[in-house]
Amino acid sequence: MAGEVLDVVAEDIVRPENLVYRRPSALLDVDMHYCPGCGHSTVHKIFMEVVEEMGIQHDIIGVAPVGCSVFAYNYMDIDMQQAAHGRACAVATGIKRMLPDKFVFTYQGDGDLAAIGGNETLHAANRGENFLVIFINNAIYGMTSGQMAPTTIDGMVTTTSPYGRDPKTMGYPLKFGDLIAPLPGVAYVTRQAVNTVQNVRRAKKALQRALEYQKQGLGFCLVEIVSNCPSNWKMTPVESNKYVQNVLIPFYPLGDIKVPEVKK
């Protein structure tokens, strides 16, 4: 029969020339400590894909402050510094100012970036520090097991807002990207997610764009990633990604908040 495909066995397909996806080489060949389905792992993976594809593994220095991702240096096969809680942008300022030709990034959670480190983040942004901030926003404190974050949304239950966040007494959820976007030192602010295949692809592109902008010396870049926390949200990973889609993204809409002006 014309066009009929004969049976192919796996051995015919599993050949180097047919490889279309493999674990990025810049991601160390070890187990990650993150909970099943955690967006941190996904972001680590795609960021290391970007690092590998751009060929900058030997020219990048990362900063991992306190939070679930404090161990990021156990997984990313690059030079890294672990920083005190909230101080990543200050540490990154020290690194980038000393090594302006290297790529520098911080990898921060919502509590680290927007609460305890709000001042450092704001002022690094305002100085137009030429590095990338990867901001994982899962609306909760993961590492300390489920307390309220500055990004916890109205009514959301956490262990320190057990009856739901009440903005009247607990403050309003903070959109840090929107807050800093108007600053002239800020080149690029975008909000992405990793809850669907399409969103993962887009988030990866955003990370790559941010590094390209850094190469061009355009200034402070913030890639916020709306992520999940299945363990502390007390959901399955699949449910947690649906919650990202149906509850968080409507409040934290995805897309570019600020892009650099195109040079003519």
């Binding site: 510094q81 920083a83 101080r87 200050a90 540490v91 020290g94 690194i95 980038k96 450092e120 002022h123």
Partner: peptide
């Protein structure tokens, strides 16, 4: 720096290099 807190952490970063 914006504060002494930031200054000492900038030193951490720079010294780490």
């Amino acid at each position: 720096a914006e504060s002494e807190v930031a200054a000492i952490n900038m030193i951490y970063g720079a010294a780490g290099c």
